[in-house]
């Protein structure tokens, strides 16, 4: 499969790219001021450059949370306009699947004792533009899915991302690197997902904050990693 990964300089993109590179053709891209090495520098403006970026691509993995740094206005612009441009180009190019990497921090204002699932409305911060931006990216993605222009898998991962879950860890929503990678891999391969599908993923930890039944249902190979 030919896969494009955005915000390739970000830590999340590196986790995913490293795990997929053995089985897929990976094209890495980032904004021109971030791109380095073999990444394609692209500012995700509308036009031929972005069309070229997605040409021949089967699936896009978009880092929709903490993929970029910068001012609040830059982040808002990236998460709205740039995402729109990417999806617009993708839908015109026949990209079949768009995997958006989002965050369960969209629910961080909910009390921990609530049984939050994909059926719950997110409650993003207006103060933290990284989180507001993640929310805005989801909104953009959903409209492209609603218009049936591209199928979107919206993966909301718990935080923080960790190498391994330690027994005495106080993180109740931590997600391990290998679970992130495995979830993305399964999302690419699954043919059970609809045009728009939210999936919540975190590692099994003590006092686990989020329910991951949807992930277990759609990605049965992950079942062992999603429960203790």
């Amino acid at each position: 499969m030919n896969i494009l990964i955005t915000a390739a300089s970000s830590a999340t993109a590196r986790i995913i790219a490293d795990s997929l590179s053995g089985n897929h053709m990976i094209r890495l891209t980032d904004l021109s001021h971030n791109a380095k090495g073999d990444m394609i520098a692209n500012d995700l403006d509308h036009g031929a450059l972005t069309d070229d970026l997605v040409s021949g691509i089967n699936a896009i993995i978009n880092i929709g949370f903490e993929g970029q740094d910068g001012t609040d206005t830059h982040l808002m612009d990236y998460h709205t306009r740039c995402t729109y441009n990417l999806l617009y180009a993708a839908s015109g190019s026949g990209v079949s699947k768009f995997i958006n990497i989002s965050t369960l921090r969209l629910y961080q204002n909910h009390e921990e004792n609530l049984v939050v699932t994909e059926r719950w409305r997110t409650d993003p911060s207006a103060e933290d533009v990284a989180i507001l931006g993640a929310h805005m990216t989801e909104v953009v993605c959903k409209e492209f899915a609603r218009d049936r222009l591209v199928d979107v898998v919206n993966l909301r991962f718990g935080w923080p991302f960790v190498e391994a879950v330690l027994p005495d860890s106080s993180y109740t929503a931590a997600t391990t690197y290998d679970l992130i990678a495995a979830t993305v891999s399964e999302s690419l391969l699954s043919d059970q997902l609809g045009p728009w599908q939210d999936v919540h993923v975190q590692s099994p930890v003590k006092h686990q904050r989020f329910i991951t039944n949807t992930a277990a249902k759609f990605f049965p190979k992950l079942a062992g990693r999603l429960s203790q």
Binding site: Y84, Y88, V139, E143
Partner: peptide, 17 residues
């Protein structure tokens, strides 16, 4: 449910903000 038409979509994003 604005859809992806540019004007509707951008206005809807503004409304969501």
């Amino acid at each position: 449910a604005a859809g992806t038409r540019l004007y509707a979509h951008t206005k809807a994003l503004g409304q969501e903000v």
